[in-house]
Computed example of a mutant assay.
Amino acid sequence: MQFTKTTEQDSSYDHLEKMSVSELLSNINAEDKTVAFSVEKAMPEIEALIKQIIPKLKSGGRLFYIGAGTSGRMGVLDASECPPTFGVSPDLVVGIIAGGDGAIRNAVEFAEDSTEQGWRDLEEFKVNSNDVVVGVAASGTTPYVISALEACNANNITTGSISCNHNSPLSQTSQFPIEVIVGPEFVTGSSRMKAGTAQKLVLNMISTAAMIQLGKVKGNKMVDMQLSNNKLVDRGIKMLMRELNIEFREAQTLLETHKNVRSAIQHYTHGNKAHK
């Protein structure tokens, strides 16, 4: 089957510089509206990958995202939000970007073209067969990502991928590929737009579904979140007030004592049972 980079095809719009701000926004928004529908078509593949990730995490393995440029940043973003949101170790979900952490802010020239550095970067974390490595690349052709997954396959490490072109080299390398075909970008080739949005949506699904399955959510609440600012402390107090049907002061004292919403709920519930 022939491989075509739809992410690089000409935009459906032309003469962008002649559009008013209103026209630009309307047209960008029209394209953005299609992204969620494109993700929906990939749901079976997304589910298949998540079902590989959950048992690995439950048995002590880790989840790695590896990518370059925008794709790498999306992976780093999702990984970095797991500890504060779900109270997990920063080592559980790890984002790796071509060119190192400096590439999060500034492009590192030709970092994505290396066919050896991706595996070296994974080896620094002592990646092994207990882990899952997900390559993220809008084009599906990034050498840094493909070569990393090839090395993982050779070392019996489960591999997944997220890309936005059909039947890409990355999909052919990955054991559990996800393809979200978003079509040409509003600005030709600017895959930080629809492709980046699609990747963000899929990454949200992967980490959120996995963490819920790991028991990091109670009801619909982030009971394991890190209380790292006043907004989150206030949220935690309100969670306790609703969950335990108690007043503000008691909830505040509970949270100050136990430093964690789940622990506060457990201690309060067990304490009440003990007194009955």
Score class of each variant (00 low, 15 high):
residue 168 S to K: 02
residue 85 T to D: 04
residue 47 E to V: 15
residue 19 M to S: 07
residue 254 L to Q: 02
residue 84 P to D: 08
residue 128 N to H: 08
residue 114 S to Y: 13
residue 96 I to L: 13
residue 238 K to R: 02
residue 146 I to K: 13
residue 127 V to Q: 04
residue 110 F to H: 15
residue 274 A to Q: 08
residue 12 S to Q: 08
residue 68 A to Y: 06
residue 205 M to E: 05
residue 27 N to A: 13
residue 215 G to N: 07
residue 116 E to T: 14
residue 217 V to M: 01
residue 137 A to Q: 03
residue 162 I to H: 07
residue 124 E to T: 01
residue 238 K to E: 01
residue 96 I to H: 09
residue 6 T to Q: 15
residue 28 I to F: 15
residue 202 V to H: 11
residue 185 E to D: 01
residue 166 H to I: 05
residue 20 S to A: 00
residue 55 P to H: 00
residue 167 N to A: 15
residue 95 G to N: 08
residue 123 E to L: 10
residue 268 Y to H: 12
residue 123 E to Y: 04
residue 184 P to S: 11
residue 180 V to W: 14
residue 199 Q to M: 08
residue 232 L to Q: 03
residue 100 G to Y: 09
residue 98 A to P: 09
residue 275 H to C: 01
residue 202 V to C: 11
residue 44 P to E: 00
residue 51 K to E: 07
residue 179 E to V: 09
residue 78 D to K: 00
residue 45 E to L: 11
residue 245 N to A: 15
residue 174 S to D: 06
residue 120 R to G: 06
residue 28 I to L: 14
residue 13 Y to P: 04
residue 8 E to H: 15
residue 3 F to G: 04
residue 205 M to D: 01
residue 91 D to N: 06
residue 28 I to N: 07
residue 143 P to H: 10
residue 179 E to I: 05
residue 170 L to S: 03
residue 253 T to W: 04
residue 207 S to R: 05
residue 129 S to E: 09
residue 171 S to T: 07
residue 166 H to E: 10
residue 28 I to Q: 12
residue 59 S to Y: 05
residue 15 H to D: 13
residue 52 Q to D: 05
residue 143 P to R: 02
residue 113 D to H: 15
residue 22 S to Y: 13
residue 159 T to C: 10
residue 85 T to W: 07
residue 124 E to N: 05
residue 155 N to Y: 14
residue 45 E to M: 12
residue 86 F to C: 03
residue 113 D to A: 14
